[in-house]
């Protein structure tokens, strides 16, 4: 093969499926690999992963997929995952390792960084290769997106990043030959007991990864009025978000909260309804491609960042929007 370097993707699975961030990172790695003549290896830990999902890795740029299969990997027990991933990295000695900045990656990879003595940059939104050195340039937001920093890891290997989902596009045009290798799961004790996973039925579409989010704030005035938000969201196939004020008032669960003490989102479209848009809210959503604001106060700060602002009564406008959006 004659590869000079190696990039590993630490894959993520949900049940029998591979998470989309794994394909996004495989495609991005394939693009970077072209510049430094690197092999792209995607590691998939889980149980009974669908064959079609594994084969898709080669369309999206992987040269090799390594599969660790065990019933112990059905629920995400960090102790079990960490053993398999650390062993894999130690034996493969890649130059770079990428994982999704999902709850899975953000919990696991910082532990991996200490375990294998490597540097790690969190939540990257851009990756590149430095001219001359071939080092990985990792760009990430800090201060809630008010500052961007580019970071590199000069010496320790692998150079590791977690990368936000939906930042990179999946490219299915690679068509590499299927090359799946099995690796044994390393059994061992765990100090953590996973009792069960409970699905949040209210949160049909997860806000961290949604393309469209309709968010409600204080202006809704009550829990019942959140129905307006849910209705518009369902018409747009969108996730439902909320401001801190709405969450603190008990109108909607915390998992919907967008902003500094909630979730940071970057959808294609963010519709803020009855949200004034204090900076704590803005840091969680201002990287959205398009922001729509509906608020009765023409001086609300949300209008300073809205691409399309509507000054008016949300109780009049939102039902009209729901009616015409199909």
């Amino acid at each position: 093969m004659g590869f000079e370097k190696k990039i590993v993707i630490i894959g993520e699975t949900r049940g029998c499926k591979i998470h989309h961030v794994t394909y996004e990172l495989t495609s991005k790695a394939a693009e970077l690999a072209g510049k430094i003549n690197a092999e792209v290896v995607t590691l998939v830990c889980g149980h009974e992963i669908e064959k079609g999902d594994l084969e898709r890795l080669f369309k999206t740029g992987a040269h090799r997929a390594v599969v660790v299969d065990s019933p112990e990997l059905v629920l995400v027990n960090d102790d079990h995952y960490l053993r398999d991933i650390a062993d894999f990295i130690k034996s493969e000695k890649p130059d770079m390792a990428l994982a999704g900045a999902t709850p899975f990656g953000r919990a696991l990879v910082p532990k991996l960084a200490i375990t294998i003595d490597a540097g790690l940059t969190a939540d990257c939104t851009e990756l590149g290769i430095e001219e001359g050195t071939g080092l990985l340039l990792q760009t990430r937001p800090a201060f809630g997106g008010n500052l961007m920093a580019t970071i590199k890891t000069p010496e320790k290997r692998p150079q590791m990043s977690t990368v936000r989902p939906k930042v990179f596009k999946i490219n299915e045009t690679y068509g590499n030959p299927v090359n799946i290798v099995k690796k044994d799961h390393i059994p061992g004790k765990s100090r953590i007991k996973m009792l069960q996973t409970v699905k949040d039925l209210e949160q049909v579409i997860n806000i961290a990864e949604a393309d469209i989010i309709v968010s409600g704030g204080r202006g809704l005035g009550s829990k019942e009025n959140f129905a307006l938000i849910f209705e518009l969201a369902s018409k747009l196939n969108a996730a439902v978000g909320a401001s801190r004020a709405a969450v603190d008032a008990g109108w909607i669960a915390y998992s919907h909260q967008v902003g500094q003490t909630g979730t940071t989102v970057s959808p294609k479209l963010y519709i803020a309804v009855g949200i004034s848009g204090m900076i704590q809210h803005q840091v969680g959503m201002k990287s959205a491609d398009c922001i729509v604001a509906i608020n009765k106060d023409p001086d609300a700060p949300i209008f300073n960042i809205a691409d399309f602002g509507i000054v008016g009564d949300l109780f009049d406008i939102v039902p009209k929007l729901s009616k015409i959006m199909e």
Partner: peptide
């Protein structure tokens, strides 16, 4: 292990259309 190569400000988001 990591080094900050550079820090910079992202483009400022501006308000656009506003209709009453």
């Amino acid at each position: 292990p990591t080094r900050v190569v550079k820090a910079f400000s992202p483009p400022v988001k501006q308000g656009g259309i506003k209709i009453s």
